[in-house]
Amino acid sequence: MKSFVVTLLLVAASVTGFAQSQAELNKKAEKDYREADKELNTVYQQIVKDYAANKNFLTHLKDAQKVWIQLRDAQVKMMFPESAKFYGSVFPMCKSNYLTELTHQRIETLRTWLSPHQEGDVCSGSIGARQ
């Protein structure tokens, strides 16, 4: 009997967890994107701090980040070329989910510069070149 009650409670909790309005799903997706963007900014600022002595690198990092933002925005337009109205009420969620995915990809790319430099890796370029 105990296991039946526990199972019933778990099922009820899972059903209420899925019973969300589209507005709630849109808000959650937007929140997830804001968190990813915040993480990206944290990683970016850590790189700027760690490589402060390497002015040439920082110039190129800033240029690359500006271009990445343009690429990100163009990819969103490519993914959703029609007006928001065309996609309906799920559009804010879908757009935020895609922005989150692209942002996580960028975070992983930038984290490379926070990794320790491996001696003997002649193709690592600026990775680890903090001065």
Rank of each mutant, 00 (worst) to 15 (best):
Q45V: 02
Y44W: 09
L9D: 10
A52W: 14
A36C: 05
G88P: 02
D37F: 06
L110M: 04
S83Y: 08
V67Q: 15
Q20G: 07
V15F: 15
A19R: 02
Q45A: 15
L102V: 03
K66G: 07
A64L: 06
T7W: 11
E35V: 08
D50F: 05
F18A: 12
R34E: 11
Q70G: 14
V48P: 01
G128H: 04
E35N: 13
P116N: 15
A13D: 09
V90M: 13
L61I: 01
N41A: 01
D37G: 03
T103S: 01
E30R: 05
A53C: 02
I69G: 05
L9Q: 13
L99S: 04
N56G: 11
T42K: 15
G125S: 09
L10V: 13
Q105T: 13
A23N: 13
R72V: 03
Y51D: 01
D50A: 15
L40I: 03
V90P: 07
P116R: 11
D50I: 07
V43L: 05
T109F: 12
K49M: 12
K28V: 10
I127D: 05
K38A: 14
A13Q: 07
T103Y: 00
N41Q: 10
E39T: 13
E119A: 11
A53R: 09
E101R: 14
L71D: 13
G125T: 11
I107Q: 01
A29M: 00
R130A: 08
F57R: 00
V48W: 03
K27P: 00
S3Q: 13
S124P: 08
R72D: 09
A13R: 04
L40P: 01
L71H: 12
L71S: 06
S126Y: 06
L71C: 04
Y33Q: 02
Y33H: 03
G88R: 03
P116I: 12
S115N: 15
M1D: 10
D50E: 15
F80M: 05
Q65S: 04
M78A: 10
R72H: 11
Q118C: 05
V90Y: 03
I127E: 12
H104C: 03
W113L: 00
K62T: 10
T42Q: 12
S96D: 05
D37P: 09
S96I: 04
Q20E: 12
T103W: 00
E39W: 01
Y33D: 01
T100K: 12
D37K: 05
W113T: 01
A52F: 08
I69M: 10
Q22D: 14
V122S: 11
Q45G: 06
F57M: 00
Q131I: 07
R34I: 10
T16H: 08
